[in-house]
Deep mutational scan, measured.
Amino acid sequence: SQTQRTQDENEARRIAEEWKRRGYDVEVRNRNGHWEVTWD
C-alpha cells in the first residue's frame, strides 16, 4: 500500500476519490492534524 499526506482535507478527499475511481481500496485518516490517504 502507499500513503500520501496533506494538510488539506479537501485535497485528501480528491486524492481518495481519484484512487477509488481507479479501483483501489482507499482509506482516509486524520492524524495529528494532517490527512493521510492510503491505497492498495
Rank of each mutant, 00 (worst) to 15 (best):
V28E: 01
R14V: 08
E17S: 07
D25V: 13
T3G: 06
Y24V: 05
E9F: 08
V28M: 05
R21F: 07
T3A: 08
G23T: 00
Q4K: 10
D8T: 12
R14T: 09
Q4I: 15
A16R: 03
V26G: 01
R5Q: 11
I15Q: 04
E18L: 11
Q2H: 14
R14P: 00
T6I: 10
T38H: 10
R29H: 14
Y24H: 06
V26I: 05
D8Q: 04
R31Y: 13
S1K: 13
R22S: 05
V26P: 03
E9S: 03
Q2N: 13
R21S: 12
E9M: 05
R31M: 14
Q2K: 11
D8G: 06
E18K: 09
G23H: 03
E36F: 11
D25Y: 14
G33D: 08
Q7R: 12
T38E: 07
Q2S: 10
T38G: 03
A12H: 01
E36I: 10
R29M: 09
E27M: 10
R13L: 11
E9V: 05
T3P: 08
V28D: 01
V28A: 02
R5G: 06
H34V: 15
V28Q: 01
E27F: 10
A16P: 00
W39Q: 03
Q2L: 10
N32P: 03
N32G: 11
E17V: 05
E27S: 12
R13D: 04
V26D: 00
G33M: 03
N10Q: 14
Q4H: 15
E36K: 02
E9G: 04
T38D: 04
V37A: 01
G23F: 02
T38M: 09
A12L: 02
A12N: 00
E18C: 10
R31W: 11
W39G: 03
N32R: 04
W39P: 03
A16S: 05
E11T: 08
V37Q: 00
W39R: 10
Q4Y: 15
N10S: 13
R31L: 13
I15Y: 05
V26F: 03
Q7T: 13
R31N: 13
T38P: 01
W19H: 04
R21K: 14
R13F: 09
K20M: 11
R14L: 10
Q7D: 14
E36S: 04
E27A: 10
E17H: 07
K20D: 04
N10M: 12
E18Y: 15
D8L: 04
Q7G: 08
N32Q: 08
Q7P: 11
W19M: 14
W35N: 00
N10H: 12
N30F: 15
E36N: 03
Q4L: 15
R22P: 01
Y24P: 00
R5I: 15
R5K: 11
E9I: 07
G23Y: 02
Q4R: 09
R5C: 08
T6V: 14
S1R: 08
D8W: 06
E11R: 05
Y24G: 04
V37W: 01
R5F: 13
I15K: 04
Q4S: 08
R22W: 07
V37R: 00
W19R: 04
R14C: 07
G33Q: 03
T6S: 06
N32A: 08
Q7I: 09
E17T: 06
V37T: 02
R13W: 13
N32H: 09
V26Q: 00
R21Q: 12
D25A: 13
V37E: 00
T3N: 05
E18D: 09
D25Q: 14
G23P: 00
N32E: 10
D25F: 13
H34Y: 15
R5H: 10
N32V: 04
A12R: 01
S1T: 13
W35D: 00
A12D: 00
N32K: 05
K20F: 09
W35T: 01
R29P: 01
W19P: 00
R21C: 08
Q7V: 10
V26A: 08
E11C: 00
S1H: 12
R5N: 08
D25I: 14
S1Y: 12
R14S: 09
W35E: 00
R22N: 06
R22T: 03
